[in-house]
Structure formats: C-alpha cells, structure tokens
Design a protein around this nucleic acid. Structure first.
Lengths: 156, 156
DNA sequence: GACGCGGTACTCGGATAACCGATGTCCGAGTGTCGCCGG
DNA sequence: CCGGCGACACTCGGACATCGGTTATCCGAGTACCGCGTC
C-alpha cells in the first residue's frame, strides 16, 4: 500500500500558496521550480485540486493557481481525497460468496470488510480534523518568512 | 491508494483456519478451492503470514498451514502488516529541502509528514484493536457451522 | 508376523513472466499583454 | 497624444509514452505415507 507522491506535492504546494496569500495566481512552473518537480506532472495534480474546488485556476498570461478558500476551511482529507480519490483503500471482492454464503447474508457487508472500513474511517477522520491552517502553525518559524521571501523574488 | 487483494484473502483464510480449529494442517489447495482463488498465488501470501509468525507451515504430504496462536492474540494489524508490509503508506521525500529548508530544521520530520503519519497511526491503532476473535463474533451465525461442514467434507 | 527400506505422491518455497496503474512527457486551446498603427 | 487592433507570449488542459509493482505462474526441495522385501 502506498500513497501517491502527488499528495505530498499537493500539500506542500497548498502550503506555499497559503503563505504567499496573494491575490495574483501563481503559475505551475514557479511552484515546480521551487520544489524541483516536473512541471507538467505537477500541473496534472493541481488540476485535480481545482476539480475538487480547493484551488481556482486562471488561464492565459499572468494566470496560475490560487487557493479557493481560507486555509482554515481546507482539511487534509480534502487534499488527499482530491488527489487519491475517495474510494476506500480496501476493496471487498465478496469472496465469501464463493464459500457458499447465502445471498441473504450478503446484503450486509461481511465482517472483514466492515472491520477494514472502520479502520479506514478512523484514518479519514484523523485527516479531516487537521486543516491547512494547523499545518501552517505546526511549521517552524522560518518557513513562512522563507516562503514570503521566495515569493517576492519570484514576483513577475 | 489501494490495499492489495492479498489482505482480503489472508483474513478470510485466517478466519477459516480459526473455525476449523484443527490440529491437522490445511493445505493451500483446499483453501484456494474454497474461495476459488489461484492456489499458487494464495500460497505466496500464506508464506508471508508464516514469516510473520501468524501461521505455521508443515511441508510434505499431509502438510499445510495452521494458526500459530489463538485468534484472540491475532490482530488485524498483524495480518495487514504481514502482507502489505510495515512501511508507512505516506513516504516523505523531503521536498522541503529543495525549497531551502535548513538542515537544522530537517532533523525533525516536516509538518506535512507528521500530520500524515498521525493519521496513519490512527488507522493502525484501529486495526490493532480488532482481533480475529472479534471478527468471528461479528460474523453471522451460519458462517462457523458452514465452515465446519465444509471442513468435514474436505477432510482427507 | 515384524522391521527396515525404497519409491511415490503430495506440499511448501522461492525464482520467473504478464498485466495494470502511477509516473512522466508532449502538444493544442484559451487568454491577457504589449507594441504598432491610425486618427 | 489617445484609442483600437493584431500578433505574441504565456498558462492551463487533456491526450500520449514509460516504468514499477501487484498479480499470476511454474518448477525444484523436502517430507510423510505406502508397499515390498527380508529376517
């Protein structure tokens, strides 16, 4: 089991956008350069965040991405779900039906699936409780000022 | 993100072994036939459970697998970790270092990684709290008797 | 009749392919900007 | 000097290759059983 790298990228980019806190959008290329990531692929992930309503995009020259709402209202689950998808990690294939379980029982999920879903719910809840703003507070003192400085240097 | 199918197979097989509750080992082929699974591949997963100390294997004729200890002492995390591995699903690649974070800060994990690890810890704990015995209790009444009946039919 | 021995069938165990999704790359569509031209 | 217009540069957006990992398969190593031969 592995969470795609795009999640890490997405979270760091959201943090950067939050610190920049700028009315002007930030293009993918700038963000990619900051973290030394492949620009085109990062763009793919930012698009996913846009489709989920976390970012807003502007086309054309002077275009780019901005946070769609305040960091207080963006949970980590929002970001993870946008990039990884909302499907459960555990997929029940109903193998009990091969073992002769009656169709009547199969109206309820089997105990195995239920247990796995319960654990996943705990994971999602833990993610939902943490917002982007919490992440900003938990970061070291130097981080926001560094982000601002970088942002000033990369202003067009 | 996706949990491999082997986890589902492993859990159902452990349940079957628990219900059989037999001093004689059960060969992979029988278990595979019960759930209509590819036998050789299932064997690979059962091997993993054996390496983790959840099952014991016996080679040769009349060989097979047995539970290594009581269902009360087998948590779901034991099974999941045995098959999926104990590595975290989220892998921090330290992209903050590309963004100019000082080596001094990097002695601590970054806030993003910390948050993700915290959520994963909640998931693991939820799995650790549930044992195989709990799963047996949560299963419908018909399941254990069906398993026993199947087991008697497939006795050699 | 009892013991020892060899062959056989069965099962685990690890090494070896095939398929699928994540990763990475490219080019087209759309939009704002800047410079030029005309009034 | 001012306003309109056109070409350009920039950025997003989706379509097309590539790679790693899960899934699937096969063959060898080891062991218990069964039958036979001998004492």
């Amino acid at each position: 089991m592995r969470i795609s790298q795009g999640v890490e990228w997405g979270l760091h980019c959201c943090l950067t956008l939050a610190w920049a806190d700028n009315p002007e959008p930030l293009p993918t290329a700038k963000l990619a350069a900051r973290f030394d990531l492949p620009s085109a692929y990062l763009n793919k992930r930012l698009q996913a965040l846009m489709r989920a309503g976390i970012l807003t995009s502007t086309s054309g020259s002077r275009g780019g991405f901005r946070l769609a709402r305040s960091p207080v209202d963006i949970t980590l689950w929002d970001v993870v779900a946008a990039i990884e998808g909302e499907e459960t990690a555990f997929r029940c294939t109903e193998i009990r039906q091969r073992a002769g379980a009656s169709p009547d029982e199969c109206r309820h999920p089997c105990s195995v699936a239920l247990a796995m879903y319960t654990a996943e719910a705990a994971w999602r809840e833990a993610l939902s409780k943490q917002t982007l703003a919490d992440l900003m507070n938990a970061s070291p003192e130097a981080a926001p000022t560094r982000a601002r400085r970088w942002f000033e240097l990369n202003r067009r």
